Simulated scan of single mutants.
Amino acid sequence: MSKDIPYLREIYIAQLAVKRASLLTKKIADEHLQRGISKVDKSPVTVGDFGAQAVVINSILKNFPGDEIVGEEDSRLIKSQHLETSILKEISWVQEKDSKANEQLGKIETAEQLCDAVDKGNSEGGRSGRIWALDPIDGTKGFIRGDQYAVCLALIVDGVVQVGVIGCPNLPHDLREKDSKIGGIYTAIRGHGSYFQDLSDDVTYPFNSKNRMKLHNEYDISQSRVVEGVEKGHSSHELQALIKTKLGITQPSVNLDSQVKYCAVAHGDAEIYLRLPINVNYREKIWDHASGWLLVHESGGKVTDMYGNDLDFGHGRTLDSQGVIAATSTVHPKIIKVIKEIVGEHGEELQKYCG
């Protein structure tokens, strides 16, 4: 890939950081399941969330000290529950396992460094400057049960997403293949495509562009497969079922946690991702969509709110819109048309389908 492409250094550091966080979180999740801890025990999520947020933010600010980060967590819970030792143990493990990246990413060695890194995810977002949106563990319940979750990182410059990287430790390379290898990193660069690499492969610099992704714009509705969330508390499955019926979709849906749904669409494993609100007042967080939005966009698809409006990542920490529809460019307009037929041009009937 040409060295003239913008943000190559940012892509490289983001991939290294996401890979490190993916290795850390996967170890925690695997050990949690092996020990047979109750699935309602949230301690692995707490340690994984804070550990992943710390290593990613530390990596970004070592290389781009003037940048801001929008993150989910702060260090209050770490301090109140005295979690420093547990988190540092996991961070030390991944820094040793991934030691060849220490020069690029730096190391966290003290409780002060840990808490300081976590607390740097306090940006309010906005329309000016360089702002990274981070979700250290997207898909908490999937993480706990050993299923799908993602480490998501995006660079937003002056309100526009320029780089997106998602680590998916448990996602099959091919959802349609029973014995597919699992674990990947999905990367997108605005204006220059989206790409897949095996999680176990070395990250290269300049960026390795050999595995470019393209979704199936040649498919019509009859060939299209839908991905949607596992948890009914995250999106309106009732409204989504009605939309699928009206569209005449016959392919069985695939239920996945987290932004891996965007990865499935971008990689051509599905053609439609539906996320309809369960509350008319709910607004999505930018860290839940920025990376995935760019992946699908750069794979040739389209992502909007439920009325077909562009998503605005410069509004702040949230999107000022309702719902998210990601799909191939072929079927996206048809989905929006059906949604408006059901809930009204501006959502006049949406409340009927919200809890």
Rank of each mutant, 00 (worst) to 15 (best):
R212W: 01
I272P: 02
I57F: 10
N279P: 04
R145K: 13
A54M: 06
L239K: 03
A52L: 08
I108Q: 05
A264N: 10
S258T: 03
H237G: 00
P206E: 05
D288V: 07
Y12V: 03
I131Y: 09
E31F: 02
Q197E: 15
S209M: 04
E271T: 09
I156K: 13
S200E: 15
K42F: 10
A264L: 09
T204G: 04
S123L: 03
I243R: 00
Y262T: 01
D98H: 11
L242E: 13
M1R: 08
P277N: 10
S321M: 04
N255I: 03
L350T: 02
L242S: 03
G71H: 07
K232L: 08
A52H: 06
E90W: 06
G48P: 13
E72L: 04
R190F: 09
E345M: 06
V163D: 07
L8P: 00
G159P: 09
V47N: 08
R145W: 06
D41S: 14
I189M: 14
V118L: 07
V226I: 15
V303R: 02
H192E: 11
Y205A: 03
L276D: 11
D257A: 14
A150E: 12
D67C: 06
Y219E: 05
G51E: 01
L16N: 07
V163N: 06
K26P: 02
V227W: 00
I108F: 13
Q322C: 06
D201H: 12
G184I: 10
Y186G: 10
I108H: 08
A270Q: 09
N211L: 04
D158C: 12
D30K: 15
D288Y: 11
I60K: 02
R225W: 06
H82L: 02
Q223I: 01
V324I: 15
E228R: 14
I37T: 10
D202N: 13
K261E: 10
Q113T: 04
K62P: 06
P206T: 08
D312F: 06
A17Q: 11
G191I: 07
T140N: 04
A133C: 12
K19E: 09
A188L: 07
E345L: 07
T46I: 15
Q148S: 15
G233Q: 12
